[in-house]
Design a protein around this nucleic acid. Structure first.
Length: 154
DNA sequence: GCCAACGTTGGC
DNA sequence: GCCAACGTTGGC
């Protein structure tokens, strides 16, 4: 079982939005970056867990944990012309973009802020992709060591 | 709103 | 295949 970190802008889709979904499940759609796509398609598997990260907001940080309940499958929003994530270059028979389904596992009692994570950037969290300079990937892997350490920060 | 960092596009 | 221009991300 592997661990991941998924970014979302809470103004668009927050952990509370996920909590309000039927069965607290959503397709993690709209990812339009090939590196991130590869992880959604090939690496992230049912049973994996991921941090739900709030980005581009007042207090960026990890808001909780989701579980992957369905492995990668084609992103329907990519081939829906009415959808704002529509990609004219993606064909239904040869999907370019993928999603996984995630289910809310737990909302943290408080957000573990980016600032806090940074305090450990040179030690415990030295290999956390999120903290690497210039990282903009919306889907990144998290080692078990990092995962467990971050859980102790809550 | 600024801007650094990075990905993508497209002309050559 | 190079690389400049452009668009996006995301913290501040």
């Amino acid at each position: 079982m592997n661990h991941w970190l998924l970014k979302s802008e809470p103004d668009t889709f927050s952990i509370d939005d996920l909590a309000a979904r039927p069965k607290q499940i959503t397709a993690w759609d709209g990812v339009r970056n090939y590196q991130a796509r590869n992880m959604l398609r090939d690496s992230i598997k049912k049973g994996d867990t991921a941090f739900f990260y709030h980005s581009s907001c007042k207090v960026p940080g990890i808001a909780g944990i989701v579980g992957v309940v369905k492995s990668g499958y084609p992103d329907a929003t990519a081939v829906d012309p009415k959808h704002h994530h529509y990609d004219a270059g993606s064909r239904p028979d040869q999907p370019t973009w993928y999603v996984v389904d995630v289910k809310l596992e737990r909302k943290f009692s408080r957000v573990i802020t980016l600032d806090e994570l940074r305090e450990h950037a040179s030690k415990e969290l030295a290999d956390l992709a999120l903290l690497r300079r210039g990282n903009r990937l919306s889907v990144t892997p998290v080692t078990s060591k990092n995962w467990n350490f971050i859980l102790t920060l809550e």
